[in-house]
Nucleic acid binder design. Structure first.
Lengths: 471, 471
DNA sequence: AAATTTGTCTATTTACATTTC
DNA sequence: GGAAATGTAAATAGACAAATT
């Protein structure tokens, strides 16, 4: 085959033809993955059109399509018909637990660590539990006879958030993330598509990438996901599900008003999507809104983690679902984990039924308000202010790059998270940082951290994004 | 297109051509799945060759191939080149936790419930723990500063089983099943193939089916998986991994001798397979064997659950791995669960470092021996007898169908498990039942249960498999 | 031992739909 | 508003290899 004239054709990315081994689609996908992960291809770089690369490599179009698709399902790139294919943001979040090195003194405004002082209440409950005569039975494999009391406590908890669910339609999982894993594994296949806010929960992004489930970003306004945008995407691509955090979306901090919920519910219903409603933050506004699970119960998997609201370390979440998903989800939960530890469930159940959980969330709301009023002091004009949230979403002045802000801030001992960590697909040119106001050990640390960030922003807001930051 | 003459062509299965809608491959796969699940197609039925069905439906061969593959990855059917495609055994085990109804008095010889009386020791340890001043910190999201002490306890535990592992290469998971999920999600893709014993752990089968990972059954002899059979399969199909329980394989009760381990290790090394070594039962023979993880560490994920050995209800397992898998597995563990509860880990760690865990396993071995000697009394000539195992694998006389034995036994109040629950691919004509000798509440119940099973076998061993059982 | 049966794998063809310009 | 650019999705073709007979 003769050499063609592509050798110095200007392509944003190409692959040495000599490295092309069979199967071609794997060669191409592997090379691309390598270059994205190692930063050879930077976020938002446009990749060559599939046809162009196919011509260049002298392989069939579909072979390139398959390679591109493989990378897209891993979350490395994203494609739009008519527009082209681009490299994704750096939303491949590091393992936060590993990076958390307590020996270095750092002010934590990155991860959300919600008011651990209230764990003293949990310890007391645990102490009493292990004194009980039946404590031994809680350490067995199967649930004890009266396991309905646990389900009953979950039902009670749901009631606080305007949700009436039969105990037959509830299971326990080992934390909210585990519930998300179970939902995705049980109800979706690799290649399926799920709609998400264009900025969404990074651990959901990471999980979807791991399971090769494709996330389709939908534009937002100040009240949450735009129904007409969702509808447009439903018409044009074959969406199977949607993921929402209506009580307090992470990271955008929006509480979705009822009007918007109704509009979205209509679209979800019309296109028969599976809704994963992550209502971990409902405890911050108990009883004020009607969850989707109450509006379109037959399509909703409702997940309510207790790690933020009651106790982080026990890793217990509740998952509610309609009858038609019962077999699939129980099956998935069983094969993923076999079971959630009964002792952990018992402690959570006891906290709920005794009313201690209510005391905990009441105090957390109070503490959150206190901390957010301090934030308000440092950033009085900030959009998206949410007085009861555990974090804030701060828009940076137009010329500050949020990744640079993150690293500049880290150099000065404050951990924050860039909006890049939350981005799916194309992101706005202006960018944000998420500040976990709940996490610093005390109010003084919070003030210090916010002061440092305020200063970094003030000193750099006139500097072009790519230049060196003043630190 | 004219009607062809296939209308009354004798095919073991066919699909009404009028029900064939686009995409064809999905129509075909869905119809087949429906018929397998609803019993229209019975286990071991031969399906029409792909070409034949393609001709009949007037679609391309590859379209049928894709449909068959979809079902194969779900574990519904299995295919052999040259031989054909067959419907799988009924190994789709029910959710055991759901079926466990303690209100009915049943003698449990089905699930493995290992000597819960020893949980009193665990309760005492937990009581002390929650009295400690740092108890509160154990309920936080991140591991406390001295989390190395947990890893150190895992390292100590591994040492008992002749395994030297750096604490950098260990993580905790929420039980052994959770460790298996994490290993499969992190290291394998849908469509990948893993070699297993032709009778293997049903929860591994279910998990693989859920994740669309294909299991390739390998023949056994009395010392475990046959190395030459493994090698043959490596040559002919593209295996990515292998799953083994060398200390005491479930359900076949084989302890693999060193000789066999070495032979298998050679093959595993030659073909660069990822070995998932499930060593949950190593505690029954501490220090007597060298695990694969010590022989071929660079290819082995070593999983050691503590649910059987120390305490079932806490759901803690240890997972060890080589450096090259570290990033993938930590990542997978993180996105699957975020974390394993620290309190649960602390209790297990305390039991290990205090030496109480050793006392527990010593007593368990003693109890197991006692119970198995009773089994020996009822089935003196049984093959595969293992005196320290928690269960036994009983071959039924040639004309007894193990599924019928299971249901006959259940009618008389004894739960046992048919070999069908453990079978992958084609199964031998003779069949077995698994009897969990550890599980009955006491020795009297065990005697009663074994007596009933003995009687069922004696009374039916002369009756043809398909006829009615005497109960 | 050779021919046949049967499943496997991946590239290719074709038709299509959306977005951009 | 129509043509061009671009990605999507499924069916099809063809070469291959193992197991059976």
């Amino acid at each position: 085959m003769p050499m063609n004239s592509f050798d110095d054709y200007p392509m944003s990315w190409k692959l040495d033809r000599r490295r092309l081994a069979r199967p071609y689609y794997r060669s191409i996908a592997d090379a691309m993955e390598h270059d994205v992960i190692n930063g050879v291809l930077e976020p938002n770089t446009k990749l060559p059109p599939q046809r162009e690369l196919a011509d260049f490599l002298d392989v069939n179009l579909s072979t390139v399509t398959r390679a591109y698709k493989t990378c897209e399902l891993k979350g490395l790139i994203y494609a739009t018909i008519g527009k082209g294919t681009y490299v994704s943001s750096k939303n491949r979040s590091e393992n936060v637990l590993l990076q958390n090195d307590k020996t270095t003194k750092i002010i934590e405004l990155g991860t959300i660590q919600p008011f651990y002082q209230l764990n003293s209440i949990v310890v007391k409950t645990a102490q009493k539990l292990f004194e009980k005569p039946y404590a031994m039975n809680l350490l067995e494999y199967v649930q004890p006879l009266d396991s309905t009391k646990y389900l009953e406590s979950a039902r009670l908890w749901f009631e606080k958030f305007n949700l009436e669910i039969s105990t037959d339609n509830i299971i326990f999982t080992s934390g909210g993330q585990n519930a998300l894993s179970i939902a995705l594994i049980s109800l979706f296949q690799p290649g399926d598509k799920i709609a998400v806010d264009c900025y969404t929960y990074p651990n959901f992004i990471g999980l979807a990438n791991l399971l090769r489930i494709q996330l389709i970003p939908i534009q937002l306004d100040d009240w949450g996901m735009l129904p007409e945008e969702l509808e447009r995407n439903c018409r044009t691509t074959n969406l199977k599900g949607i993921y929402l955090m209506p009580s307090c979306s992470n990271p955008t901090n929006l509480t979705m008003p009822m009007e918007r919920r109704k509009q979205l519910a209509t679209v979800i219903k019309r296109y028969d999507l599976i809704l994963i409603e992550d209502d971990t933050y409902s405890f911050l506004l108990p009883g004020l809104y009607l969850p989707f699970a109450a509006q379109i119960p037959d399509q909703t998997v409702y997940i309510c983690g207790t790690s933020k609201s009651i106790c982080a370390g026990l890793r217990v979440a509740f998952m509610a679902f309609p009858d038609r998903m019962s077999a699939l989800l129980s099956n998935g939960a069983y094969y993923a984990n076999l079971k959630t530890p009964t002792v952990n469930i018992e402690i959570i159940a006891e906290l709920i039924t005794s009313g201690l959980a209510d005391q905990i969330i009441e105090k957390k709301i109070q503490l959150a308000k206190e901390r957010n009023s301090i934030y308000k002091k440092y950033f009085p004009d900030a959009d998206h202010f949410n007085e009861i949230s555990l974090f804030q979403w701060l828009a940076l002045p137009g010329d500050i790059d949020s990744l640079q802000a993150e690293s500049a801030s880290k150099k000065q001992g404050v951990r924050i998270l860039s909006s890049q960590k939350f981005a799916v697909g194309a992101t706005d040119k202006y960018s944000h940082v998420r500040l976990a106001t709940c996490s610093p050990k005390n109010v003084e640390e919070l003030e210090k951290g916010l002061g440092i960030i305020r200063k970094i922003i003030d000193e750099n807001s006139h500097i072009a994004a790519k230049s060196e930051f003043i630190v």
